[in-house]
Amino acid sequence: MERLCRAALAAARPAGLTSVCASRLIDDRPRGVVWASDPRARRIDDLQVVLGEGPGITAITEGGPVLVPDLRGQWRQGWVTFERAAVELGVRSICAFPLQIGAVRLGVLTLHGTEPASLDAAQLSEELAVCDDLSVALLVADAGSGDWSSVLDGALDPPLAITSQAAGMVMVQLGSTIAEAMARLSAHAFGAGLSLEEVSRAVVERTLRFQPDRFYPETDPDDPQPLARN
């Protein structure tokens, strides 16, 4: 995975893109980094997971590359929060490619730079070829393991293992699905201004516990209501 990610970055460097991150999907959403070239690349991926928006999310949803030469002039109104946060991190240009084989969605590759940048036709073609190889590598890793936990122990890096473990714990705490548990983790990270990994570690270390949502029955407006006390 590292070799393929470095190949993708090498093909994009002449265009001005300087960082790369590959992440895999769980429930059709990026849920953990497979390999990142630097902390900022990892942070950009984490932002998209937490916010639920950005070029990687769009690439997965639309099933094709999303190329943004300049984030400050991007036209997607749904990225308002991501755009602001990414620019604050020093990111100006970004490209995202879905990693998929046919209809099977496996991950997403994101490249970005600190200055406006765009890929020419030859560079784009090379990136697409690398993405095909990355997709096969992810599929082989899953098929060869036969079990998600063994993939976490081998092919993926520790932050994804921590996040997956935390999601499982939150799922039990809430009595929910794994997707709902991930949504709660992401929402807490966004609200607290923390990374998904930081929140996940707090859950695993049992310094943070999630409680099920409380639901209140709707009241009949004709029923008498108790008076509020000061």
Score class of each variant (00 low, 15 high):
2 E>Q: 15
3 R>M: 10
9 L>N: 10
9 L>R: 12
9 L>S: 09
13 R>E: 14
15 A>H: 10
16 G>Y: 02
19 S>C: 03
20 V>G: 06
24 R>K: 05
24 R>Y: 09
30 P>T: 05
34 V>R: 12
45 D>K: 06
46 D>M: 07
49 V>P: 00
50 V>M: 07
51 L>G: 08
52 G>S: 06
54 G>R: 06
56 G>K: 01
59 A>F: 07
60 I>P: 02
64 G>I: 04
65 P>E: 09
72 R>V: 04
76 R>F: 01
76 R>P: 00
77 Q>A: 13
85 A>Y: 05
89 L>M: 14
92 R>W: 02
95 C>F: 13
96 A>K: 05
97 F>L: 13
103 A>H: 13
104 V>Y: 07
104 V>L: 13
106 L>E: 09
106 L>D: 07
106 L>K: 13
108 V>Q: 10
109 L>V: 06
110 T>I: 15
110 T>A: 12
118 S>P: 03
119 L>E: 08
119 L>A: 11
120 D>P: 00
123 Q>K: 08
124 L>S: 11
124 L>D: 11
126 E>P: 00
130 V>P: 06
136 V>L: 12
137 A>H: 14
140 V>R: 13
141 A>W: 00
142 D>P: 00
145 S>K: 08
145 S>V: 04
145 S>F: 01
147 D>N: 13
149 S>L: 10
152 L>G: 15
154 G>E: 14
156 L>A: 15
159 P>Q: 12
160 L>R: 11
161 A>N: 08
161 A>T: 10
162 I>C: 12
163 T>G: 04
165 Q>D: 06
169 M>L: 15
171 M>S: 12
171 M>H: 07
175 G>Y: 13
176 S>G: 07
177 T>A: 09
178 I>K: 14
179 A>Q: 10
179 A>G: 07
180 E>L: 04
182 M>T: 09
183 A>T: 14
183 A>Q: 09
184 R>Y: 04
186 S>R: 15
186 S>F: 12
193 G>S: 02
193 G>L: 03
195 S>T: 14
196 L>Y: 00
197 E>D: 11
198 E>R: 15
199 V>D: 02
200 S>N: 02
202 A>T: 04
202 A>D: 10
203 V>H: 10
205 E>A: 04
207 T>Y: 05
209 R>D: 08
216 Y>D: 11
220 D>R: 12
223 D>N: 11
225 Q>C: 01
229 R>S: 06
